[in-house]
Amino acid sequence: MKKAMLTSLMVILALLVLLPFLWTFSTSLKPLNEVNKFPPEWTSVNMSLKSYSDMFFYLPFSTYTLNSLIVASSSTILTLLIGSLAAFAFSRFQFAGKNVFLLIFLLSQMLPGASVIIPLFQLLQKVGLYDTHVGLILVHTAFLLPFVIWLLYGFFLAIPRDVEDAALIDGCSRMQALRKVILPLALPGMGATALFAFLGSWNEFFFALLLTSSDSTKTIPVGIGLFVGEYLDVWNQMAAAAVLFSLPPLILFMFTRKTFVKGLVAGAYR
């Protein structure tokens, strides 16, 4: 009895929480004349996937998708490369100033984008990287790095020193030990970290909005963010874009939820 009540409460809450998405999903399936219909209805006989192909045809979403993929995957790779070097140093060496460096990375995580955007804009313009993929990748990498370092640091610490010492005794150099022994063991953790980084860049809006200007570099969130309000007449195509854009994060999250949650909890305390 109690269980049934709690279960129905959970279901009702889930529907309430997901209402904005469910409504958006319903909108994405409707033809335009039914989107602008009153009273609004959840379903209709004319539902189809037409908006999902129209959005690529009428709005420049195929370019945006390509841009998002380029920027997010490059930022992920770059962040992981640089981040694992730093995390390796933090987890395996004692050196002067270690805590200061750790603190710097912790604090730069709190940094508001709004308080650095102007100089970054000026700098990218000066060196010709404004409105380019490379410029955005560098900025995303820089902003993802602190969190990635903290995450990897935790994962690396969990790998027993003995394994590495054994490798060193067997004649590996430090870098070989990193490459051949630690990296394979750290692989699951690095996978989760890569997921964070990818999602961080994929969803990022502020820098992508202010550091790009042409359709050939804009990412999907910029497209959606700018079109809201301006293309009022195609709510169904915008809804389709929103749904499609949400699929990669949702699918990735579904398969890595446990690690994701663990990282979330650990990240806040460090």
Binding site: P20, F21, N36, G225, W235
Partner: peptide
């Protein structure tokens, strides 16, 4: 349930903003 309740955190803020703007729409919002 915990998976479903976490979805708003995973989704891009831009999509979230769009979805909210749409359900709050003065004429066609649910």
């Amino acid at each position: 349930a915990s998976f479903l309740y976490m979805i708003p955190w995973v989704i891009s803020p831009v999509v979230a903003g769009f979805a909210w703007k749409w359900i709050l729409n003065d004429r066609f919002g649910i």
